[in-house]
Amino acid sequence: MSGDLLVQLLLSGIGMGFIFALIAIGLTLIYGVMNVVNFAHGEFLMLSMYASYLAFATWGADPIVTLPFVAALMFVFGLLVYYLLVRRVMQGSMNSQIFATFGLMVFLQAAAQFIMGADYFAVRGGLLSGVLEVGSLILPAPQLAAVVGASTATGVLYWLVFRTATGRSLRAASQDRQAASTLGINVDRMYALAWGIGAACVGIAGSLLSNFYPVFPRVGAIFVLIAYVAVALGGFGSIHGALVAGVIIGLLQVLAGFFISSQLKFVPVYLLYLIVVLVRPRGLFGRL
């Protein structure tokens, strides 16, 4: 096999990896701040893809143009989910939190099918639908955008969490809810913020994805499973962990799909995950 092919595989793997990472970052942020797993995360992705598609179909607006609006919309949606649903079950047992977000997942899927039908919709000829050619190598534009998007999102989140007063409050709220409240931090607001930002991240991922992936009610499930693995692999709550794990997964699945079998392309991914969990239960970059 030629060197070009290997480089092409690596680049494609990294490109897809950044898309997985972008989805995982929002998930890990919510988990990191409040120890709640958002089972409806895939459906957040589905909603943002529908939003991008509808804007495209109605006004002909390109997903890259509507990206900030979709992200803002998803931010508000994240806040709503927190205030209307998650906040109410935080006092309950772990189970009620699981069932609340799981129920939200089922509800959103069913609602999407009810309103939009089970059909497949796709944005056609968006600005990001092309490819960038470097010599004989091909770099799909949505993947390039994901590289930029995911890196930027990680960078901005880092800056926000570790360099700003709000970030300090976020971290305080995630470390010790009561102590943080005693110190005058509005914990409730911090949690809401985490949900908002987490949803906005997945909104960006959805906007980028809608450039090449069709949207349908169950589209979230396809990506979110990978995102869960990325979060666990990278370490629960670790933002850069999710980024690194997403890229590792993207690379592994492309290489395994090419060299082993495309049916089994996620086997090495889950195998690595198992090994990491066994040897290092907190994940690659997680804290204990």
Binding site: L9, S12, I222, F223, I226, Q253, V254, G257, S262, K265
Partner: peptide, 19 residues
Amino acid sequence: ISYQQGTADVTSEVQRLIA
């Protein structure tokens, strides 16, 4: 080339076809 139904990415499948 047999792939998992509901796959997120078919890059490796297409690369195998190209090869």
